[in-house]
Design a protein around this nucleic acid. Structure first.
Length: 415
RNA sequence: GUGGGCGUGGCUCAACGGUUAGAGCGUCGGGUUGUGGCCCCGAAGGCUGUGGGUUCGAUUCCCAUCGCUCACCCCA
């Protein structure tokens, strides 16, 4: 039985890495234009970073983390998301002291022990952005803007931005209480799933697919009616800016994030073509988080793009891995002659390959063709005797002889 | 954690319970002893996921197990 990769962990094969690179390069370009700096952080943290950051009673922390003890008994976890660890780093190095507003991005693998399905792996990749040190609505908008730009520039048009405000510690508790009261009143009429949700995550009841539950929830109180003046004002400013930017959005009053730290703005960018896991990017504001992690009371807003999901939406452009030149050497003499030439050409950026085996000309040309070589040079005993090399253009079938002494020069003009 | 679907050469898939498990693509070789793609011919490559059971006989039916996958849940 051959060894397989761990469940939920995937190899990214050579045919896909080009696309990955394209996404990462594009994102870096966008971040650069927005003035962000890159930060690279460990994938392993003390478990505490996540339990305090994400929330002790979230699904992520309670049942999805890869947690284990190291040899000295310390509890460590593979990061299930980037924000908590990133803020730990900001705090540890007091990065906030250097400038009033910190704009950071990072990218890499995250780990959650969930049942794998389409768009959901146990090791998955995120591109993550965090803006720290400002409460301004425009910073929320910039975060959304970056996500939107990256996704649009990849050619994806069929996307929806959903946005909501979760209020703040001032106004949310009152809403939560009223919602609980309402749910208690209709508890008998809810489906079993929702009855369970009433205790674990009341806001999720809004997401239920059952018709009866949906009907009941139409009359439920909405957070929007409970927002304090500051939160309401914040939301309306965010929406205004989105309109100025011509980024279409729908307000989704049921939009909830699974992480405890979110306040005010939350958003998701969803695609209709992804199946059940339709969120391509998501984020929101988390003003109290840095303080909860033992740092100063700095506000922040951030987002993460699910790279694997983005990839599912992009067409595989299987561009032929073409090369510039294939060197067909016939016989040991010719090989020895030709190898130094390849060195010179490669140092000049020419993509050159040759056969590792001693093969016939036909087979070598076949290989050249398969590799998509634009030119082939042919060198055999005959040519060596005449001090000549054959240069063949694979698309026009033309070939001509060039003297050995001027071959490099000649090739550089060809290619 | 719960449920559905599916496991056959490298890939995509055939085979009413019945001879030696096939095809296309890909790979390699030949047709052209030194000239690619197209065409023609040929070859290699399978413990039919694994273990049990039913049967004269199982790729096919049943059970278990493992794996993949989709959905629930949850989330990027």
């Amino acid at each position: 039985m051959a060894i397989r990769a761990v469940r939920g962990f995937k190899d990214i094969l050579p045919e896909e890495t080009g696309l990955w690179r394209r996404i990462e390069t594009l994102a870096q370009g966008v971040f650069n234009s927005f003035g962000l700096k890159e930060i690279r952080i460990p994938i392993l943290e003390k478990t505490e970073v996540f339990s305090r950051g994400i929330g002790e009673h979230t699904d992520i922390v309670e049942k999805e983390m890869y947690t284990f003890s190291d040899r000295k008994g310390a509890s460590l976890s593979l990061r299930p998301e980037a924000t908590a660890g990133l803020l730990r780093a900001v705090n540890e190095h007091k990065l906030y002291a250097k400038s009033p507003v910190l704009k950071l991005f990072t990218m890499g693998p995250m780990f959650r022990h969930e049942r794998p399905q389409k768009g959901r792996l146990r090791q998955f990749y995120q591109i993550d952005v965090e803006l720290l040190g400002t409460k301004a609505p425009l910073s929320d908008v910039e975060v959304i803007w970056m996500a939107w730009d990256i996704i649009r520039q990849l050619g994806l048009m069929d996307l929806r931005l959903e946005i909501n405000s979760l209020g703040c510690p001032k106004c949310r508790p009152r809403y939560r209480d009223d919602l609980r009261t309402y749910l208690k009143g209709v508890f008998q009429d809810l489906c079993p799933d929702c009855q369970r949700r009433c205790n674990t995550n009341p806001l999720r009841v809004f997401d239920c697919k059952e018709k009866s539950c949906k009907k009941i929830m139409e009359k439920a109180p909405l957070i929007r009616q409970y927002l304090c003046p500051e939160c309401a004002d914040h939301l309306s400013k965010v929406l205004d800016f989105l309109e100025v930017l011509d980024i279409p959005f729908v307000i989704n009053p049921y939009l909830v994030r699974g992480l405890d730290y979110y306040v005010r703005t939350t958003f998701e960018i969803v695609s209709p073509d992804l199946g059940a896991q339709s969120t391509v990017a998501a984020g929101g504001r988390y003003d109290g988080l840095l303080k909860d992690l033992g740092g100063p009371d700095l506000p922040g807003v951030g987002m993460a793009i699910g790279v694997d999901r983005l990839l599912l939406l992009l067409k595989r452009d299987e561009e032929a891995p073409s090369i510039d030149l294939f060197v067909a050497a016939l016989g040991p003499m010719a090989r020895k002659k030709v190898i130094p030439w390849m060195g010179i050409l490669r140092r000049n950026g020419v993509r050159v390959q040759m056969s590792y085996e001693d093969k016939g000309l036909k087979s070598q040309l076949k290989q050249a063709n398969r590799l998509g070589a634009h030119y082939v040079i042919i060198l055999g005993e005959d040519e060596i005797a005449r001090e000549k090399v054959i240069v063949r253009n694979m698309s026009t079938h033309d070939q001509q002889e060039v003297s050995i002494s001027s071959i490099i020069l000649a090739l550089e003009t060809f290619i």
